[in-house]
């Protein structure tokens, strides 16, 4: 079993992280294993965690009465799950469900936010790592909105 800090350092979101920052993150993190079908996050619940996916895929989805469950996005190894903890009201907007056995690093977001407030250099580094993920997802969502495969009629 690799030490937790090493696993975090190898995750793309934290590539090139400084030893000091890594120590701060590791202090908020733990390894978790989620069974297929289990929920990582639930729509409407307080957002206290983020996950660094290591193995297995998860799906962001929302249940719509009469339309079944609508999948919005799937995420896999190397990706980050959970961004609503960044901004008030710190509440999840979607359900996230494991599609298969998922191994991940679970990070206590309250802990990470506290450390960011206390050390703004660390906080700025965190922001620079999470913002690209947000922007990429915004771009992808816009592309989905364009419905490019439609016939235009």
């Amino acid at each position: 079993m690799q030490p937790l800090a090493q696993i975090i350092a190898q995750h793309p979101v934290f590539s090139g992280i400084s030893a000091a920052s890594l120590q701060l993150i590791s202090g908020c993190a733990r390894n978790v294993c989620i069974d297929p079908g289990q929920f990582l996050l639930r729509h409407g619940e307080p957002a206290h965690t983020l996950y660094l996916l290591r193995h297995g895929h998860v799906v962001l989805e929302i249940a719509a009465a009469g339309r079944g469950t609508l999948a919005v996005q799937t995420l896999g190894p190397g990706e980050l799950v959970g961004l609503s903890w960044l901004l008030p009201p710190y509440q999840w907007s979607y359900d996230v469900r494991a599609l298969e056995l998922v191994r991940a690093v679970q990070i206590d977001a309250d802990c990470l936010r506290r450390k960011s407030e206390a050390d703004h250099d660390f906080g700025y580094d965190m922001m620079k790592r999470f913002m690209p993920v947000l922007v990429q997802r915004l771009q992808a969502t816009r592309l989905q909105l364009l419905d490019v495969y439609g016939t235009g009629r």
């Binding site: 079944g68 799937t74 592309l143």
Partner: peptide, 23 residues
């Protein structure tokens, strides 16, 4: 294979095709 929109029982990727490039 990825789809823009899916409902159950689709178990594959959901998201734009460009998102697959990273992996």
């Amino acid at each position: 294979v990825t789809v823009d929109h899916a409902t159950t029982p689709w178990q594959g990727h959901v998201g734009v095709v460009t998102a697959l490039i990273a992996h």
